[in-house]
């Protein structure tokens, strides 16, 4: 065990080898990491496979904010969440995958709600254009569409 490391800090290693030093309270917001810590099967460095440094940094940023702002007003946190999830679809896809795999409930909630907002109230045509070509939402390439769901969309 690295002696320089403070007792309540953990090191997370991303899939591309970058290491992040985070307080344990932040790291255990991921249920998967929490289980590892509780089962004492975690050494001081916890590998986080499938999540690259870029995405891991985002997830840590989110968890840190949620950890710090327990006392803060809920509306501030909501604003932070909605700004945080306002990203391109590729980042959203990676974040959702990471949040799901590492079991970070707050993050997953915020992300999925954001994707739902992207669909809400839009026409079939619009949803199709918006998601076409992205992984997030594997759009049919054929033109098969049930008509009754489209007729009124251009009202």
């Amino acid at each position: 065990m690295s002696s320089s490391l403070e007792k309540n800090m953990l090191i997370l290693r991303s899939s591309d080898g970058e290491e992040f030093i985070v307080p344990e309270v932040v790291a255990v917001m991921s249920k998967a990491i929490k289980n590892m810590v509780e089962d004492e099967c975690a050494s001081n460095t916890i590998p986080v496979p499938n999540v690259d440094a870029n995405i891991l940094a985002m997830v840590i940023e989110f968890c840190k904010k949620h950890d710090e702002s327990e006392a803060e007003a809920a509306s501030d946190l909501k604003t932070f969440d909605s700004e945080f999830v306002n990203r391109g679809q590729e980042a959203l896809y990676d974040l959702i995958t990471a949040a799901n795999f590492r079991d970070v409930k707050e993050l997953l909630d915020a992300l999925c709600q954001n994707v739902a907002e992207m669909i809400k109230g839009k026409s079939v045509h619009h949803i199709r254009i918006q998601f076409l070509g992205y992984q997030l939402f594997e759009i049919l390439t054929s033109n098969f569409i049930w008509n009754i769901w489209c007729d009124r969309d251009f009202d």
Partner: peptide, 22 residues
Amino acid sequence: ILSFILSFLSIRDSVKARILSR
């Protein structure tokens, strides 16, 4: 995850999304 995302939507919006993707 897909099911969770859809649960935020109304019946009509969720059908619109579902008919677009296999």
